[in-house]
Design a protein around this nucleic acid. Structure first.
Lengths: 226, 226
DNA sequence: GCAAAGTTTAAGAAAGGTTAAAGTTATCCT
DNA sequence: AGGATAACTTTAACCTTTCTTAAACTTTGC
């Protein structure tokens, strides 16, 4: 899953630079250049995180923060030139999850974003832990797979592919879909790679069960067998 | 075990005098000279007891007390010049365990401290806070680890890593998870650090036991062995 | 039957993991 | 305060697993 981040920052250069770095780090970015613009985005769609500059023309960050929090349950990292402890404490108590002072290292920002997104995912944590299909079970947090109680060893990619297929048992997934889900960076190259992984998964499954699990949809992709 | 006591008192003389007496009585002392300073210590580490002066510059004792209680389950003895019954009752109901009026006999204070610490140890005593896995035991409050009864020396990070793994024996923890849990500040840099710590833990465990404890999940992270 | 798409196998490449040792930082103790 | 000690991080060489690619083979659908 790709996380979307909203950047609210009036300085064009900083905004662009931040967006570039975050995209490289694998996030999706929406750039807002004023507080009001930022609010519009917040109303329109959900974000995984907001980066908020405090010094904004018109509505400033301090006013904006409570409004963001009101509209969407989302972690906010505040960025500002102010570095007094006072405003820091105030901000954290008024709802920001974290705080950075300018100028900041982009690497540190990315690290802090990671912390907040992960933490938020935990507290929100409404995700299913176990996926089941026929007699095949995938336990997401322990990374184990079992067939008829017998556990089988899967590699990371194999596990991810099965996870995707089990998430919607009826749906057909193209190779591109599978790449997008199971690989971190986008992958350009032989699309036979997927076939090999599928083949390996089938082999492992066949070793413990007679059943067919993965079905080939010719010219389209793969799906779980009926 | 040595008990640590936090003294929150703005009068330097009284603070020092109290600290001296408590040290002589065998306690460890941390001295804070304002409410906010006191809160910082409370956030940072656990205490066996807090001595809180009510008349403090800035944030006063009445405000501080609930915040202390929120951050840490610790008995509080309040000290004040006020001797009206009203404020006494109010304080006890708002969370203070005991109350003394200035000027006080240091011997009496020490006696009351002893009472509170003993009482608190009893009521808390219900939770041993010991994590167990196979023949490995981690005692959280005493920071000790034993294998088959033999105790082994772990460093802070090693202990934290084991603590995380033992908290959910089936779950796989990524290096990122481990960083988030065992390190206070966010970490940017080589992720080999974790590998080294894992390696060191294994070495220490291997010195006293044949068993495998930590399992590598390739491409994902680490987990306790089945 | 033929072309396009899929499967399988095997081997080399790449990524990730382990370990020991050296370098750095923090902590303790006098 | 300063030196000793312990803890943590980094480095680098080596090892293991996993991924990708290529080649030969099989299936599907026109």
């Amino acid at each position: 899953m790709i996380h979307k981040i909203l950047i609210i920052e009036d300085d064009t250069d900083i905004n662009n630079m931040t967006a570039d770095a975050l995209k490289k780090a694998g996030y999706g970015c929406t750039q807002a250049f004023s507080g009001t613009e930022g609010l519009l985005y917040i109303e329109k769609e959900p974000y995984s995180l907001v980066i908020l500059d405090l010094m904004l023309p018109g509505m400033n960050g301090e006013e904006l923060l409570p409004q963001i929090k009101e509209k969407q349950a989302v972690p906010v990292i505040v960025v500002s030139a102010k570095d007094s402890l006072d405003s820091k404490v105030e901000l954290l108590t008024s709802g920001a999850e974290d705080y950075m002072t300018k100028p900041f290292e982009i690497q540190e920002l990315i690290a802090r974003i990671g912390v907040q997104i992960r933490r938020f995912a935990d507290t929100q944590g409404g995700k299913p832990e176990v996926l089941t299909y026929k007699d095949l079970q995938l336990c997401l947090d322990s990374f184990t797979a079992t067939v008829q109680g017998k556990s089988i060893e899967l590699t990371r990619q194999e596990f991810k592919i099965l996870e995707l297929l089990l998430s919607h048992p009826d749906r057909v997934y193209s190779k591109q879909d599978i790449y997008d889900y199971a690989w971190d960076d986008l992958y350009i190259g032989e699309d036979k790679t997927i076939n090999v992984h599928i083949s390996n998964i089938r082999k492992k499954l066949k070793a413990v069960s007679e059943q067919e699990y993965i079905e080939t949809v010719w010219g389209i992709g793969f799906r779980l067998a009926k």
